[in-house]
């Protein structure tokens, strides 16, 4: 029997669970305008997975990358949920991300 596949499935479940956590925290403390940064991190992890010598590590990096990419598409919706009162809304001004003037010109990805 090959239990490595199930282990990767459980790792995916854990990463999605962690995704819920960091999307809520990142939106609360920094704001949804930071969305390009987890997206780029996710893309980098997937690209890096192509160059790893071990298939297991490559799989872990690929899964983590995909979850970060997905999380970046959730930040805008999370901001709206917080504004609607479904999640805790941070009343303080949030810091602008580096390159905010370019980020504001791009529509945040949304699935």
């Amino acid at each position: 029997m090959n239990t490595e596949g199930i282990a990767l499935g459980i790792f995916t479940l854990a990463m999605i669970g962690f995704g819920f956590f960091w999307v809520i925290r990142l939106e609360y403390h920094l704001g949804y305008l930071w969305w390009p940064y987890p997206l780029v991190l996710g893309i980098l992890l997937v690209v890096l997975s192509l160059f790893l010598p071990n298939a297991g590590w490559s799989a872990l990096f690929g899964i983590a990358g995909a979850v970060f990419m997905w999380g970046s598409t959730e930040l805008k919706e999370q901001a709206i949920r917080a504004e609607l009162g479904w999640f805790k809304c941070n009343p303080q001004r949030k810091p602008d991300p580096p390159g905010v003037q370019w980020i504001k010109r791009i529509k945040p990805p949304h699935m």
Partner: peptide, 24 residues
């Protein structure tokens, strides 16, 4: 240098799995 495609396949399965579940 041979590329290791396992991670890319897993990434695709993860992203498409979450997306199709989200919409479906």
């Amino acid at each position: 240098m041979a590329l290791e495609w396992s991670g890319f396949c897993m990434a695709l399965a993860t992203f498409l799995g979450i997306w199709s579940g989200h919409v479906g």
